[in-house]
Design a protein around this nucleic acid. Structure first.
Lengths: 209, 209
DNA sequence: TTAAAAGTTGACGGACCGTCACCTTTCTGA
DNA sequence: TCAGAAAGGTGACGGTCCGTCAACTTTTAA
């Protein structure tokens, strides 16, 4: 006899419907964005892909942009634990860069490997040139991580905002290009970025201020 | 007695009006984008800012996006000669990186220094996360330049697409942050990027393939 | 059992879209 | 110089999508 673990039971009918509707809208949006592209898509297209009425959309989201943000935040939510793991396991700067770039490029390859292909704008972290608040917070996390790692080895006198910006800029731009190559090779991209950034940081640290 | 140098004379009334209308629309667009932001702006807002009729807009541009592209291309057109100069004067990799980043960050500072401030999305190269064809061609030019400079010193066995992507990613992301700092210090950003990238490339070149 | 609360529905007024028939201005060449 | 042709400006119009809201249905809770 199940106690109260199953969402079908612990949540009322009303709450379950809400969850389902929200998910239906997000799924529909993913489908529509993939089919005709984010720019071209409109709210009616999305709602038509579900069996809900147009008015219902507005009980869940204010705009197409907000739906996009929710999808992007899903990606961020999936990525964040990886970053957490990277943070915990990193021994030094090199291993941190390796793990962080590795996590990012592999994540990107998996998220977008097939899903995109056609004209769809990047749904995951990359290229979501719409910078959502969640995105910003990832950037902040990385900066904090870098500061910790670099402080350990006495390189914390650098301009950490720029260091982080450079690290992220490399990831974003390289990521775009990596996704266009066949076969997808996130490992290659990881090695490249790691070496580049490591050498850069070490040299900057030595250079006179 | 003026011969035929003055546009007021060498062009017919018709042609002059066309130029003026086009310019009026572009100026209005710049104003409106700056005032209410690119996303929020619509074609009627732009045309209302001129003394033209709505139908006239479509004799010049197909959409708001196309206007944006024209504005972005203006920036690109202003930037391209600088890149040309950098190319001609660069002696080696270090001087090329210095000159190229310098050109970019100073250009950015001048273009956006005041003009932006409020919520306007970046109009110049940076952050125009809408990647226009002209933008792409700048990227290609830089890659070609880097290839030439690096070939001279025997570093041309690297993955030049990734080298270029990294260089541009650093510029884009650092540029965003630079613009948010007061006082604007493009020289600082230039130094940072140059050192980072130079060390990275040299190390990559030495590392076993 | 039933009244209140929550949530859904789709029709509606409003905004912006892109077009096009009409009109004004400029150009051309006789 | 002038008349017919060409270019281009105009704004009203039908169409689409927007976001809202009163009416309705379903769920909850007492």
């Amino acid at each position: 006899m199940t106690v109260t673990a199953d969402p079908e039971i612990r949540l009322g009918k009303r709450a379950r419907a809400k969850e389902a509707n929200r998910k239906a809208i997000l799924d529909a949006a993913r489908t529509v964005f993939a089919r005709i592209g984010y720019e071209a898509a409109n709210i009616r297209d999305i709602i038509r892909e579900t069996d809900l009425a147009s008015g219902t959309f507005y009980n869940y989201f204010k705009s197409k942009e907000e739906v996009f943000e929710a999808l992007a935040n899903d990606s961020v939510a999936r990525f964040r634990p990886m970053l957490q793991k990277v943070r915990e396991e990193a021994k030094d700067l090199e291993s941190y860069l390796h793990a962080a770039y590795g996590a990012y490029f592999h994540f990107l390859a998996e998220e977008n490997g097939d899903a995109i292909e056609n004209g769809m704008p990047h749904m995951s972290l990359i290229g979501v040139r719409i910078d959502t608040p969640d995105m910003q917070s990832i950037s902040d996390e990385i900066r904090a991580d870098l500061e910790i790692v670099m402080e350990k080895i006495g390189l914390d006198h650098l301009d950490m905002e720029y260091v982080t910006a450079a690290a992220i800029g490399i990831a974003r731009e390289m990521g775009d290009h990596m996704l266009k190559r066949r076969p997808l090779d996130p490992t290659e991209a990881t090695e490249f970025a790691r070496k580049l950034m490591l050498a850069g940081i070490e040299t900057l640290a030595k250079s006179p201020r």
